[in-house]
């Protein structure tokens, strides 16, 4: 039995508070924006937003979250199992998406299916690459706003397909919306937890 099992509720509350800084939202938003810009320009430079956002995530956590909220080590069990589940889940989804992308055109679909795929292919791509990972994050970390992002990742491309907009537009809208939410949460977080320069020294300081 986990030594912390009796305090699971408290641990969960702390974990949720730790994720209210909006930095995870920024990570998702920047990735979606980069993906949209890649679709718009065909420039692979924008795909590097993924790596950039990961570096940004670590930097912001170290420079903003920890000095204000404080440092918390949740213990190896929780951290490793969550990271592994999320990584394996997202990896599997990306793999399935690429596999589907490679197989579907070779299956000689009927003209009606082909037309439907042409019109709504972004729903599948966006759903797999952003929707499901957001839903996994929401489920595992208990961050309910990520359910909304998952819904938007499917809903916006569906609307885009219905109205025949450019395929990058729903993705760009999603990216900008999530990034803006991340910035707003980060601003709220910095107001709620102002930086205390002296607090670090603590006991016998």
């Amino acid at each position: 039995m986990n030594k912390n099992s009796d305090f699971e509720k408290l641990q969960r509350r702390v974990f949720l508070a730790y994720q209210q800084d909006g930095i995870l939202d920024l990570l998702v938003g920047i990735n979606a924006t980069g993906f949209a810009l890649f679709m718009l320009t065909d420039s692979v430079v924008f795909l590097s937003f993924g790596a950039m956002s990961a570096i940004l995530y670590i930097l912001l956590k170290q420079r903003i979250t920890i000095p204000r909220f404080g440092y918390v080590d949740f213990g190896r069990d929780r951290t490793v199992s969550h990271r592994l589940t999320i990584l394996v889940g997202i990896g599997a989804l990306v793999f399935i998406t690429f596999l589907a992308g490679a197989i579907l055109p070779r299956m000689n679909p009927s003209p009606a299916t082909k037309a439907l795929l042409d019109q709504y292919h972004m729903v599948i791509i966006s759903g797999m690459v952003f929707g499901l990972p957001c839903a996994i994050v929401a489920l595992l970390l208990g961050l309910s706003r990520f359910y909304l992002y998952a819904l938007l990742a499917v809903g916006l491309p569906t609307l885009g397909g219905l109205f025949g907009t450019e395929t990058y537009l729903p993705m760009l809208t999603l990216g900008l919306l999530v990034t803006a939410t991340g910035i707003w949460l980060l601003a709220k977080f910095t107001q709620r937890y102002p930086r205390d320069e002296e607090a670090g020294s603590g006991v016998r300081g």
């Binding site: 305090f7 918390v72 213990g75 205390d196």
Partner: peptide, 15 residues
């Protein structure tokens, strides 16, 4: 709080 997590710093406890 200390029983719920592995270790924390002073700022976290203050907050």
């Amino acid at each position: 709080y200390l029983a719920a997590v592995d270790r924390v710093d002073f700022i976290f406890l203050m907050n």
